[in-house]
Structure formats: structure tokens, C-alpha cells
């Protein structure tokens, strides 16, 4: 049955429309969960609020387990799901830059757009910074091209890289998530509350 676009149930335009609707729903839920607050977002780095960690871990666990069950019941063909190409050096560099931007600005790209949409000026500045960064990156790409394409691993999943079964990986991931939830709750109780 799925992915809908790969099996011709949704055409290209239908896929874009579906993405638009899901995007609105995603933004709405982010805002409702308080992710439009940069203080709340940055709280994960200072130990006073781990809601970001919890929400994204929950989303990852739900998504991973859900996809595997859907695949098992033949409601989705996982082999047709697009997997990003993996370039380890570029991914590490990008992760560091993203993390720094997250700490300094208090948003990640998605939540900044969400916060800008409800009129937060800091988020608008953040989005402006993203756009300028994209333009600079695009214009100077030839300088980074070799590094960007270094050590390509292809469209590979972590389980393929590690050589383990998807289900076992998800089980470990669930256990890690529960441990992280438990530990972060303990830290939250010890760190002084921040009002925002």
C-alpha cells in the first residue's frame, strides 16, 4: 500500500499536498508542545528542561517501531522508503555546526520556523540567519565539495552498517530511550527550575 507516491496511489502533486498538510500539523503540534520557546529548547543543554529530548526520542521510537510493524503487515514497503546518503565526515561537521547553532540561537531549523510563524522576533532573526547561511554555503560550495563528498557510504541504514536486524536495533533503542527518560527526569529534579 505504501509509500503512497511510490505505488502510484498519490501522484507527485498529491504527495506535495500531503507533505504540506502534514507539515502544518507538525508545526501546530510543535507549537502546542512549547517548542516555539527558545528557552525551553535550550533547556536540554543546561539540564532544566528535557522535553525536547523526550519528545524527539518518543517520535523516533514510535516512528521506528510503527514502520517495522507496518512493513510486517505489508501496509508499507520499507525497501521503497528513501534513505539519505551517508557521508560520515560531512555528517559529523554538520552535526557540530547544527548543535552550536542550537545552543546559541535556541532553535533548530524546524522549530525556528514554527516560532517565527507565531511572531517571535528572535525566531525571525534565526530564520534570516538560516537563509543567509544557505546562500553562503551554496555560493562557496566548490570550496567544500571534496570534504562534502568524502568517504561516501551510500544510502545506508545504521542497521546495515552494524549488521544487525532492524527489530533488535529498535528494541535496544527503546531501552536506551527509557533509560534516558529516567536519567533526564532525575537531572531535572536536581537542577534549579527556570521560569519562562
Amino acid at each position: 500500500m505504501g509509500p503512497l507516491t511510490e505505488f502510484g496511489i498519490l501522484n507527485h502533486e498529491g504527495g506535495i499536498l500531503a507533505a504540506f498538510i502534514i507539515g502544518i500539523a507538525f508545526g501546530f503540534i510543535l507549537e502546542q508542545a512549547g517548542f516555539s520557546s527558545s528557552r525551553k529548547m535550550a533547556g536540554v543543554f543546561y539540564g532544566y528542561d528535557f522535553v525536547v529530548l523526550k519528545v524527539f526520542f518518543t517520535a523516533a521510537v514510535t516512528g521506528a517501531a510503527g514502520l517495522l510493524f507496518l512493513n510486517y503487515f505489508e501496509l508499507i514497503d520499507l525497501s521503497q522508503i528513501y534513505v539519505n546518503r551517508f557521508f560520515p565526515p560531512a555528517a559529523i561537521a554538520g552535526g557540530v555546526i547544527m548543535g552550536l547553532g542550537f545552543i546559541i540561537g535556541g532553535f533548530c531549523p524546524g522549530t525556528s520556523v514554527c516560532a517565527a510563524a507565531i511572531g517571535k522576533i528572535d525566531a525571525m532573526a534565526f530564520v534570516g540567519g538560516i537563509i543567509i547561511g544557505i546562500i553562503i554555503f551554496a555560493e562557496t560550495f566548490p570550496l567544500f565539495k571534496n570534504f562534502f563528498n568524502m568517504n561516501p557510504k551510500g544510502n545506508i541504514k545504521l542497521t546495515e552498517l552494524l549488521g544487525i536486524k532492524d527489530g533488535i536495533f529498535v528494541l535496544f533503542f527503546i531501552i536506551i530511550a527509557i533509560v534516558v527518560f529516567f536519567v533526564s527526569s532525575k537531572i531535572e529534579k536536581k537542577v534549579k527550575k527556570v521560569e519562562y
Partner: peptide, 18 residues
């Protein structure tokens, strides 16, 4: 959550339809 994870770990790998 852990029970579901165990079920996923035990389930046989689904043949991928290509």
C-alpha cells in the same frame, strides 16, 4: 514499549518486495 520491542526483535525478517 519494551514488550513491543521484544516482539519486533523476535518477528522473522520480512521478505522485502523488490
Amino acid at each position: 514499549a519494551i514488550s513491543l520491542g521484544i516482539i519486533l526483535a523476535i518477528l522473522p525478517a520480512k521478505k522485502i518486495r523488490t
